[in-house]
Write a protein that binds this DNA or RNA. Structure first.
Lengths: 196, 196
DNA sequence: GTCTATATACCGATAGAC
DNA sequence: GTCTATCGGTATATAGAC
């Protein structure tokens, strides 16, 4: 199921990541994790203190991965608008939703400061990174000077997270794409943009 | 716990609605429902075929309520922009999230066409209603003629749904408010608006 | 490190008394 | 209509052999 050279601990973390994405924390049982990882009870409780501890390791790894993926696009070439567009339009498995954002709907995750922390930090980092890019765009005259960069950044991230909700509700990625299109049309650079 | 003149069936539905909002479908057990409703096992299985059947009744009622609430604001007075603003800024218990949207993160709800239907229909109705208002705004010259009403509507709903995600991640409504502010600043009527 | 066996509680549902 | 009793199965964790 996983590559041969993967440690039992890694296999446990990977199968937990998958299940957290598919079914959330509440919907994921140790038994299901063990079956997917091809491990026994003993292994899990040897490497981890219990379900919350293993989930924390899985969430941290997923958060780190999401950050790296987003950074890859946001740090890329192009104007601020183009980088935001690249982020919004990057290939996604829309119907699976966001592996980080979906955790906010999990009561046990929200109830635990430790489990919630990586989720919060990741989305917060993303907002700040986007705010910086919007700020750049304002300086270049691409975006109206009156816009508040942090608010726009929140709108961008919210549109993505909410787009997943709409897509999953309808069973089709179309609504996600529509939300992104709408946002991009609102963000489209002013005609008075300075040509950098 | 509930008003005296509420039938057992209604008490079951109401406690299920609360629990679905707080903990989702997967995280809600018949036992918890019965305790909150002050009823026994027998009552639940007398009035409903089982957990999915009771959940369906609860979801339908919640969806209907959400629709009525949204309609109350969207059908209100004011320009298209003002009605959209009223919808976005209406009082919400932000940290509780959307009782309809949160269900899209529930694997068992998404796996069941019957349970998903009310969720889909409600969010779809909301998008169409908002698209109509945006269209009105375009006709009045409030919004740029080049905007696609359906896309903008998707962006509006996504911003709200995603705003809940950001708020719950950070444990504060601030991010929700920021997302709404950002969207409203992008939607703000053009100067060339026809004064109706 | 990994396994199986075991433990206590809860899951979702059914049976049948009242 | 509502109750309690009971069911087979699972959730999460521990014990202890290997």
């Amino acid at each position: 199921m996983y590559s041969e050279d993967m440690s039992t601990s890694d296999r446990l973390i990977e199968s937990t990541r998958e299940l957290l994405w598919e079914r959330g924390y509440v919907g994921t049982s140790p038994k299901a994790i063990l079956e997917r990882a091809g491990a026994g009870q003993g292994s899990m409780y040897h490497h981890f203190k219990g379900k919350p501890d293993l989930a924390l390791a899985a969430i941290r790894r997923t958060a780190e991965e999401m950050r790296a993926t987003a950074a890859g696009v946001l740090d890329g070439p192009g104007t601020p608008y183009e980088r935001i567009e690249a982020y919004l339009r990057r290939e996604r498995d829309v119907l699976r939703g966001c592996p980080v954002g979906r955790l906010t709907m999990d009561p046990d995750v929200i109830a635990s400061d430790e489990l919630r922390a990586p989720v919060d930090e990741t989305l917060d980092w993303l907002r700040q990174r986007l705010a910086g890019i919007v700020e750049e765009g304002k300086e270049q005259g691409l975006f109206a000077a009156g816009l508040d960069a942090e608010s726009i950044a929140a709108t961008i991230v919210a549109t993505v997270q909410g787009g997943y909700v709409l897509a999953r509700a309808s069973g089709s990625p179309a609504a996600f794409d529509a939300g992104v299109r709408g946002l991009l049309s609102l963000l489209a650079p002013r005609d008075n943009a300075r040509t950098t």
